[in-house]
Nucleic acid binder design. Structure first.
Lengths: 248, 248
DNA sequence: CGGTTCGTTGAGGCCCATCAATCTATGTGG
DNA sequence: CCACATAGATTGATGGGCCTCAACGAACCG
C-alpha cells in the first residue's frame, strides 16, 4: 500500500533537473541530450564521496536515495541534506576541489557521472547551463536556511514533522488526502538529520502516531492528517513552491 | 584597544568580492570597474529587504554589518547568516524574485545597489562573472552546512565559540596571540543566531570568560586563548581556508 | 531625572540526552 | 529446522542543559 517512491529515473543529462530549469534553451538541451556520460550503481550503505577527498566527477542522482554527512573530529555526525533523484549529490565540487562532506547511498542508487571539467566547460559554453548551476546552488541555500531555522527554533516534533512534509513535497507525491512513501532512513539516521538521538526520534514518532497525524508500517510512512502535521511543523511550503515557480 | 573592524570599504563593483575571485578576467574586471552603480546608506536597525518582498536590487555590502533573518508564523526568529563587508546581502534574489528572508542593518551600512537585470546581464555576457555568482552561492552553502552541524550537534558553549572564531576569521583579523574586534550584536540577536535565549547567551559568555578564553568590554571582544576556544568549538578553519584557496 | 535598552543573576521546570534493557525481524551456519 | 548473531525498534529510569519567569543593575539619552 505504499505510494510511488519518487520521480522516474534519469536517463541522460537532458533529463536531469539541470536541463529542466527554464534557463536552458532548446538548443542547449539538445546538446545535453546528445552527451553520453557514464553511469554507475552503488549498493545501500556504500560511500560515493569521501569527506576530504577530491572527487573527479559530479554525481547526478538518477535513482534511489542518498545523503550528505559531515563528521566532526569528536565523531558527532550531522546530515545537512537528504538527496533524492534529480539532484546533484556533490554540487559544491562544481567549483570546490575538496569535498567537505561525505555522500552515502541510502538505498541502491544509480548515478550519472559528470566529469568536473566537462561541467565547467558546459557552464562556460552554454550560459543557460551556467545559470542552472547557480540556480541549483541557490535552491540548496534556501533549503539549508530553512533547515537552520528548524534546528534552531523548532521542537523535536516540529522538526520531524517538517522533515516528513519536506520529503513528501520534494517527492511530488500526488496530493490526495493520504500520502504514502517509503522512508529508507533508520531512526539512527533520522536522528543525525534532526539533531536528536535515535531514542528520542522513536519517542517523537510515537507521539505523532498517537496524535493520529502519521502511520507507519516498516519502512512505509503515511501522512494521515496533512493539515495537522503542518500545524505541528509550522510548515510553509511556499519556499519550495517558489522554487518550482522560478523554474517555469 | 579594539582591532580593525574589517576589510576596507568597497568603492565599486570592481572592488567587490565578486570581482576578486580568480574567475573574473582582467578585461571583465575593467568592465566592472567602469560600471557606476548607485550607493545608499542605512542606519543601524533599518530594514534593507523585507521578508516576502521582491527587491529590485542586489545589495553588495560595502561597509558595516548586516544580517538575514527568517521569522516563522508564530514569531520565532532565526538568523541564518551574519553578513560582513564584501558579501551580497540578498544573493538569492539573483535568480529568485521573492525574498524569503529579511535583511537588517546591524550597524550603519553602505551598500552598492546592483539592479537584478544588470546582474543577470553581466552574468550572461561575462562567463567569469557568472561563475563568480555560482561561487558565492556555493560558499554560502558551505557555511550554512557547517552551521547546520553546529545547531544540531554542538552545545551552547561550542556554538558560541564557533561563531566567534568564524567571525574573527572572516574579518581577517591579523592573527596575533590576541585578536580583538567589535561585535555589534546584542545578546538577544546572538541568541537568534545560535538558537538560544538571550539569558542563556549571557550565561554562556560568562562561562567562556571565566574559563579565560575571551574577554569583553562593551561591544569589544577579545579572543584570549585561540587554541582553547577552538577546542571548545571543535573549530576546523579548513572549510574557510579552502574557500580562500579556490579563489586564488 | 525618568525612560528605555541591554546586560546580569537567581529559582524552578521541562525537553531531550544518557544508560540500559527488552523485543522483533532478518539472516546465517550447523 | 533450530541455535545463534546482528540490526533496528521500543520502552523505562534518571539526570542535565537550556528555557521560562522574574528581578535588578548599568549605560545611555531626551
Amino acid at each position: 500500500m505504499h505510494g510511488s517512491s519518487g520521480p522516474r529515473p534519469l536517463q541522460s543529462l537532458g533529463d536531469a533537473r539541470l536541463a529542466q530549469l527554464g534557463f536552458v534553451s532548446k538548443r542547449e538541451r539538445d546538446a545535453l541530450l546528445r552527451l553520453s556520460v557514464p553511469t554507475r550503481t552503488f549498493e545501500a550503505g556504500e560511500e560515493l564521496v569521501r569527506q576530504g577527498s577530491s572527487p573527479k566527477y559530479l554525481y547526478a542522482l538518477s535513482e534511489g536515495w542518498a545523503y550528505r554527512s559531515i563528521t566532526t573530529r569528536n565523531g558527532a555526525r550531522q546530515i545537512p541534506t537528504v538527496i533524492i533523484a534529480g539532484a546533484i549529490c556533490n554540487l559544491d565540487n562544481f567549483l570546490f576541489e575538496r569535498a567537505d562532506f561525505a555522500v552515502h547511498a541510502l538505498t541502491k542508487v544509480t548515478v550519472l557521472m559528470l566529469p568536473r571539467e566537462l561541467a565547467l566547460l558546459l557552464a562556460e559554453q552554454y550560459p543557460g547551463v551556467g545559470r542552472a548551476f547557480t540556480w541549483l546552488a541557490l535552491t540548496e541555500n534556501a533549503i539549508l536556511s530553512q533547515w537552520a531555522v528548524g534546528l534552531g527554533q523548532r521542537s523535536a516534533q516540529g522538526r520531524l514533522a517538517h522533515l516528513l512534509l519536506e520529503l513528501s513535497t520534494r517527492l511530488e507525491i500526488s496530493a490526495g488526502r493520504e500520502e504514502s512513501f517509503d522512508l529508507p532512513l533508520t531512526q539512527e539516521l533520522l536522528g543525525d538529520v534532526l539533531g536528536l538521538t535515535s531514542v528520542h526520534v522513536n519517542r517523537t514518532m510515537r507521539q505523532l502516531r498517537d496524535a493520529g497525524l502519521i502511520a507507519t508500517s516498516g519502512p512505509g510512512l503515511t501522512i494521515l492528517d496533512h493539515v495537522g502535521l503542518q500545524a505541528v511543523a509550522e510548515f510553509d511550503p511556499s519556499y519550495l513552491r517558489q522554487i518550482e515557480a522560478s523554474a517555469a
